[in-house]
Design a protein around this nucleic acid. Sequence first.
DNA 1: GCTAATTGGCTCACTAACGGTTCAGAACAA
DNA 2: TTGTTCTGAACCGTTAGTGAGCCAATTAGC
Lengths: 222, 222
Amino acid sequence: MPRAVAEDLARSLRQRIDSGEWSGRRMPPERELAADYGVARNTVRRAVEMLADTGAITRHVGRGTFVNGGVAPSVAAIVERIEGTSPADMMEIRLLIEPQAAAVAALNASLAELSAVEEAHRAAEAAFDMPGFEACDAELHHRIFACCRNELLKELHNLLTVLRHQTPWQEMKRRSFSEARRLAYCAEHGALVEALKRRDPDAARAAMHAHLKSVEANMLGR
Amino acid sequence: MPRAVAEDLARSLRQRIDSGEWSGRRMPPERELAADYGVARNTVRRAVEMLADTGAITRHVGRGTFVNGGVAPSVAAIVERIEGTSPADMMEIRLLIEPQAAAVAALNASLAELSAVEEAHRAAEAAFDMPGFEACDAELHHRIFACCRNELLKELHNLLTVLRHQTPWQEMKRRSFSEARRLAYCAEHGALVEALKRRDPDAARAAMHAHLKSVEANMLGR
DNA sequence: GCTAATTGGCTCACTAACGGTTCAGAACAA
DNA sequence: TTGTTCTGAACCGTTAGTGAGCCAATTAGC
């Protein structure tokens, strides 16, 4: 009496999912479910497909079927996922956020903060090896973010910085680094610092955008 | 047998590291761990690689694998600080990021994504109680971010959403909610959706900015 | 100083397990 | 009858894990 077997199965599975069984983890493989319920795998597949359509589960070839949203979204979990970010995605976000931040910084920065930015710029000019320049560059960007007087913005930048200290990024940076590029970066930093000192938000935004475009071109080869 | 051996192993090792075992000293060699856990060295290597990517450990050829003191806690510290974000700071960041994201979305969105956005807009129009509208509103913004095709951006938005689900923020929203404001928000959403459908990045940016300014005014009383 | 052992880095072929797909045929309903 | 649903089975491509081997850097012992 094959009447809506797949639908009953989908309902049963949905209940087990809602009850928290497998929550956030892997479900049993289709073949196992088929054996447990005493039905054909095709039937299991149709039931599982219904759940997948509603977004309750996600399937991966070769890996298994996973229950979505089992764990409450926490900041830590998001950060964990963020750790897999690709350099291209990261660069896009930097281009989206940092020019805006530079504009805000131009409007909000105190004199002391501006001279701190300038000091980091001078240090970057004086640094000749790659790790030294890298550190000064990071410090410069960090001090610009600090000018915005927004804790969340600073922390988001910290987060992105930590990500960029991970191995794939470091490797790309190391390969793309050269003395000519260091000098180009310093010139771009100089223009940015000047715009900040003039309190010119549009110029600061444009300078940061140009700088990041240059970084993107060097690192991703665009 | 659960087929997440490497991940389980990484979790187990992470626990042993956090518990202070080996702290600052050398961990057992990979071959030894493989024998202890009864898995192949390749599997151990993948688990250890996950920990190395997070900066929890450092590996040296010929010397061994060492537990680091500070990097992992720094991410945890960032998370902790982010969780204490004030609504004002948060609003500022939304104003900084979301208009840009809307502009990118106008350029990148597929037809399917656009209709998903529009669908969320209609749902928000049809929702009459505060929690229902809230959910639709969040979904609308989330779908706009999804149009950008950038995983990191989506996760950053998730981060902001989680923060907005925290109690002080919820309380402010509840107090500031009214039917008139819901209608105003829907109108603003409508303008935004129209701009996206026209593929007009500047209009989308302006519409999102206006919308968030309106939210800011209602919530923070500015 | 030289050598051997140890350790992480890397590659390869192989296996097992998983979801994706297709098909012929049986069982039932309209 | 005709059409739908379920069965049973085969085969595919992907993924994770295994086991083995070799390399290069480092350390320890002679």
